[in-house]
Design a binder for these strands. Sequence first.
DNA 1: TAAAATTAAATTGTGTACAATATATTTCCA
DNA 2: TGGAAATATATTGTACACAATTTAATTTTA
Lengths: 145, 145
Amino acid sequence: MKQLKFSQHLCFPIYALSRLITSHYQPLLGELDLTYPQYLVMLLLWEHTSMNVKTLGETLMLDSGTLTPLLKRLEAKKLIKRVRSKEDERVVNIQLTAQGTALQQQAGEIPLRLADSLGITAAEAQELRDAITPLLYRLKPALRG
Amino acid sequence: MKQLKFSQHLCFPIYALSRLITSHYQPLLGELDLTYPQYLVMLLLWEHTSMNVKTLGETLMLDSGTLTPLLKRLEAKKLIKRVRSKEDERVVNIQLTAQGTALQQQAGEIPLRLADSLGITAAEAQELRDAITPLLYRLKPALRG
DNA sequence: TAAAATTAAATTGTGTACAATATATTTCCA
DNA sequence: TGGAAATATATTGTACACAATTTAATTTTA
C-alpha cells in the first residue's frame, strides 16, 4: 500500500492551527495572567457563575487530571473558590471570587483583538467555526485501549 | 461591551477537535509505540529520509524545546539516529535506522483506520483539510511578547 | 440493608508545548 | 581579520493533556 504523504494527512493542519491560535491568545491573556485553558474555564464561569468539575470537564472535554491542578492554580490566583458540595460530598463546585468576576471587564476586548492578531475577519472566523463545530460534536469519542 | 458567549468563540472547537483526533490516533499509534507528535516526525522521515532539527521544526511548527527531548525518545527506541553535521557543527541531522524504516510497513493502514475510528468519509476529511490548510499558512505567526 | 458497583475528584507518571536562556558554531563586516 | 551578530540546538522551568490508579462518597441490588 502506498504511504500517504505528510501533506495529505488531515490531522496535522488541525493540530498546527490549534497551537497557532493559542499562540496568538498568549500575549493577550498574559495581560490577565491567564493561560488559554484557564481562560476557557473563566469564560464558562462568567457565563454560568458556578460549575462543578465534572460539568467543566464535559464541556471542555478535559478530565480531572488536567482540571484539578489547573483549578488549583486559578484558586491560588484568587480568581475562583473550590467548594465541596454539601449535598454530594464527591462533587467540587467552582465559584468565582469577586476578583474573578471583575476580571471579565478586562477580558471583553480579547475576541476582537484576537481576530485582529490572526488577520481574519469575523465572517471568516464564523465560517470556520460553522465548518468545525458540527463535526466536533458528531465524532465519536475515542475508545480507550 | 457584551461578552461573547463561550459557544461563540472560534478557538474552542479547533482546540477540542485537535485533541479529539489525537485521542483517536492513540490506540492505533500505541501498537507502534509512538505518540502522535512522534508519528508526525516519522511520517516526515519516511518521506524525506533525512531532515535536520530546524527543518523538522519549521515543518511541524515546533521548536527545539519540544523536538530535542522528543527526538531523544525516538533515538532511545532505536528508530532514528541524531548525527551532528560535519559541514556545520551546529546542525543535527535526523536519520532513520533500519528499524525506523521498517516501521513504515506497520503504519500504512493508520490513515484509513483513523478515518474509520472517527466515523468520517475520505471526502469529508479532505473537505475539512481544504478548509483549514490555506488558513493555517495564511495566518501570521504570533508576535512574541 | 450490606456488599457490590458506580461515580467524582485527586494523584501519579509520561510526554508534549513553549517561553526564556545558555552554549557552541558560523557568518558578517568594520 | 577579529569581534559582533546571527544561527542551530540544548537546557530549564511552567503548564497542560491524558492514561492509569486511588480514594471517598453514593447508588444499586442481591
